[in-house]
Nucleic acid binder design. Structure first.
Lengths: 342, 342
DNA sequence: ATCTCAAATGCAAGCGCTTACATCGACGGA
DNA sequence: TCCGTCGATGTAAGCGCTTGCATTTGAGAT
């Protein structure tokens, strides 16, 4: 009790157990290299002193942190939560720790966070979407930190990715909307600048229109942030026009729910007066009233696969294999045949 | 290009700029100690080499990381998202980086994550709720890492906290329910073991019943995980009894939304046949149909205040001052007077 | 008892950075 | 002109750990 009660170091443990620091280190990291008797003594010392290794020192010496970093655009809604949870569970199974930070959909912040995570010794990174400055990818390469892109799969992308084909998924949904009888279709999209997921989703809708002989240029598209309020505002905007759309395809469920809320508030009947669709199939989609027709994304599966692949890349087991996850359109009440007189 | 293209170090920059490592370090950390001419030269070298400081080394040498860690029970829903976002923004303003990890409501995992964050050199920690092993608090003290408890304020708690009084908030809500005419009240609570927030919320309801001459022991309480499905199951369970409650108070909005979903599925009218209330006032509460009567928690304010206080503690400016945030009952359609014949 | 050879352990050199202290140099005052 | 000062810069000692290599130990073989 005479000593200052500050965090004990490897050295303290070594002294306490009467061995060298090397032995203590081996006890902690490669126990089977140490004979049982010694090991027990060391572990007891560890216990008695309440020792915890200093990570910074360990990372520095070992050049390995068993930490994976993830930068997601936002924690403000459930879009990324579920997939990330699965990602984390899978990492834990392999002894990795996950560190998350959010970029608020801002490229600058994302860049900063990536640097922070790399500087902190992350062995690998999970990134959302493909689009970002080349500089960042070069930086990662230079630091030899493998990165895995998720939530998006682009057939011709450089980066390894585990995600889904946003364009195809949206195409399928739009086809459904068209098949249901809609011709005057509008869209509420997320901000497309720097966001390939948002871009390709819009593209998917356009392609579907084109494929069905509808002029994609005539489609009204409002771009806005992925927030409930934004969805509501966009909805109001779209419905204030002379020729109202009969269906509004939203870039994700959050926007769609915002639209639904505004519809209810202003007494617009969904789906009688206008159909609304979402994307992601988060819990909100089923809870919403009317329940949302949307694109179901198997987030958990994606998270799990992403973790497995990223770990393989970190271990050098894999050079990076992309996976395209299948999505599926889910029919619920928010989409219906347009009124004939519309 | 002859050299191996691996991450440049301080030393490389120093050589490149023709100065010592000390000077480079000073340029980066305390620029005004370096004369402009030198500084420019150094910064240019930094730029040319694409240098990023190695965090582990920096933390080790400086014993300061400008990193704050937060361990939240789950990222799976919006309960913590909003407050955390505000927390992060405020930290950024002061030059701190936030690292988040989730414990999935499991004490063991939380403990592990706390150690991971501390070992990683976190200057301070944000913890949710007061209740955890003493050992953890001792560990933090030993490592001299200040911790701030949020989402809960307990008048007589040891730990510094910035949160709200869960008992009082729930008391007020329950009083409202009683005032609305309900007598047969049931509750769907989160798991109370190791969770003081869940515990005190139940206590709040019990106290309100008591205060109104209703025997709290007669109240049916179902404990379950904080998931939509769990809420739904609990609702079914409660409504399958002979004497159905006229009001169900839920431990949070997620459980309440689950109850609402089950009600809709089974054709139970809310609030006509049974009233339902939530807690937190996340977006879901307003979206739900019928919209939820709930307790509004000013999450952003809490996050901001928590960040400010924690930074003060880290800087040694404050020894830790607790703040109790005011909550407010929000009336929406899910709560109404019980049918007279009930 | 002696020798052999793994297995177990110790030694010590870093990992990349910060910082106390030493040194250098320029400028102003005597 | 010389010295004192003070600001700018360099020197080098760690920070706590891992790990290649050297050394010691002990069990089995002779």
């Amino acid at each position: 009790m005479g000593k200052t009660r500050s965090a004990p170091t490897l050295n303290d443990v070594a002294n306490h157990a009467g061995v060298s620091t090397a032995t203590v280190s081996r006890c902690l990291n490669t126990p089977n290299q140490v004979v049982e008797k010694t090991r027990v003594r060391v572990m007891q010392a560890v216990e008695e002193l309440g020792y915890t290794p200093n990570f910074a020192a360990r990372v520095m010496a070992a050049k390995r942190s068993f930490t994976i970093g993830a930068i997601i655009p936002t924690m403000d809604n459930a879009i990324f939560a579920r997939g990330l949870q699965a990602f984390q569970s899978e990492l834990r199974r392999s002894g990795y720790t996950l560190l998350v930070s959010s970029s608020e959909y801002k490229p600058d912040i994302e860049k900063e966070q990536i640097r922070a995570l790399v500087a902190r010794g992350a062995d690998g990174l999970l990134l959302i979407g493909h689009e970002r400055e080349d500089e960042i990818y070069e930086y990662l390469k230079r630091h030899q930190v493998p990165a895995l892109v998720a939530w998006s799969y682009l057939p011709d992308a450089r980066q390894t990715s585990v995600g889904f084909n946003n364009r195809d998924a949206m195409f399928e949904l739009a086809q459904n909307v068209i098949d249901t009888g809609h011709r005057r279709i509008a869209m509420i999209s997320g901000v497309t600048a720097g966001n390939d997921r948002a871009q390709t989703r819009v593209q998917g809708v356009r392609d579907a229109l084109q494929a069905n002989g509808i002029d994609p240029c005539k489609m009204r598209v409002i771009e806005t942030t992925y927030e409930i309020d934004s969805g509501a505002n966009a909805f109001r905007e779209l419905m204030s026009r002379d020729l109202r759309p009969t269906a509004i395809i939203c870039g994700n469920d959050v926007l769609a729910v915002g639209a639904l809320r505004e519809a209810r508030r202003t007494g617009v009947a969904v789906p009688d007066e206008v159909s609304v669709t979402g994307f992601d199939d988060i819990e909100l989609a089923e809870i919403a009233n009317p329940a949302l027709t949307t694109v179901h994304v198997p987030h958990r599966e994606m998270g799990r696969k992403a973790a497995q692949e990223l770990i393989a890349m970190v271990n050098g087991t894999s050079k990076g294999v992309s996976t395209c996850i299948k999505t599926q359109v889910v029919h619920r009440q928010s989409l219906a045949r347009p009124q004939t007189d519309a």
